[in-house]
């Protein structure tokens, strides 16, 4: 087939295209509502949710995961473009959540006797934290990678990693509504570890499935 013929066929297939941001937003929201909704229906949010979010530590925890999700959304959208090899300004935005976690961790640690540090860091449930963020985050990761596949990332691994952070953060936004381990010495460590694990998973999968 001559190239002009192919061009004619492609032109006949013209149609309004859905912009990437809308495809990614729809995928992440739908998966978060589905997976997170199922989790909350099965286990339920913490009983004191409304009152807890008025206290600084739970509010900071929620802010940490929301900030991480927003920055990861912007960065993965940017990295889905073929001419872009670095997150640019979104790279700085990605640092906001870790900076918040480190600051909250040290502020809390400074006011806590050293003998109590291990108890605070251990909290009540490290394993439930991993299992919860993973269980909600992995379906969201599938949806995120599905949306990013419609993009054209110059660096599939990097785009997948940030997509993993996005999915993990969205999952953690829901999990934090249930989790009662509010000390920054807990979530500053274990939420961060869970998000790093999701980032690594996204990187491994992205290298394979986001190639085009």
């Amino acid at each position: 087939m001559r190239t002009e013929a192919l061009v004619r066929a492609m032109a006949a297939d013209a149609g309004p295209v859905r912009p990437m941001w809308r495809a990614l937003l729809a995928a992440v929201l739908a998966a978060t509502v589905a997976a997170g909704g199922l989790f909350l229906l099965a286990i339920g949010p913490r009983p004191d949710l409304g009152a807890a979010l008025m206290r600084p530590d739970p509010a900071l925890k929620q802010l940490f995961v929301v900030a991480s999700a927003l920055a990861a959304f912007g960065a993965s959208l940017r990295l889905a473009r073929p001419e872009v090899a670095a997150p640019g300004g979104w790279g700085w935005a990605l640092l906001a959540a870790p900076a918040l976690a480190v600051a909250a961790f040290w502020a809390t640690a400074a006011g806590t006797p050293v003998a109590l540090w291990p108890t605070r860091v251990a909290g009540h449930g490290i394993l439930p934290c991993f299992a919860g963020i993973g269980a909600i985050g992995l379906p969201i990761l599938v949806a995120t990678l599905g949306a990013l596949r419609r993009g054209a990332p110059a660096r599939p691994g990097l785009a997948g990693a940030v997509g993993g952070l996005l999915a993990g953060s969205a999952g953690a936004c829901v999990y934090a509504l249930y989790c009662t381990d509010d000390s920054p010495m807990f979530w500053g460590v274990w939420y961060a570890v869970a998000l790093l694990a999701m980032t690594a998973t996204g990187w491994l999968l992205g290298r394979r499935v986001l190639r085009w």
Partner: peptide, 22 residues
């Protein structure tokens, strides 16, 4: 020419990733 056609198909498939303000 195969490469040309393959590239055209990629442009077709990925045209959503161009941002109108870029």
């Amino acid at each position: 020419e195969d490469v040309v056609q393959e590239t055209l198909l990629a442009i077709h498939d990925k045209r959503r990733t161009w941002r109108e303000d870029a």
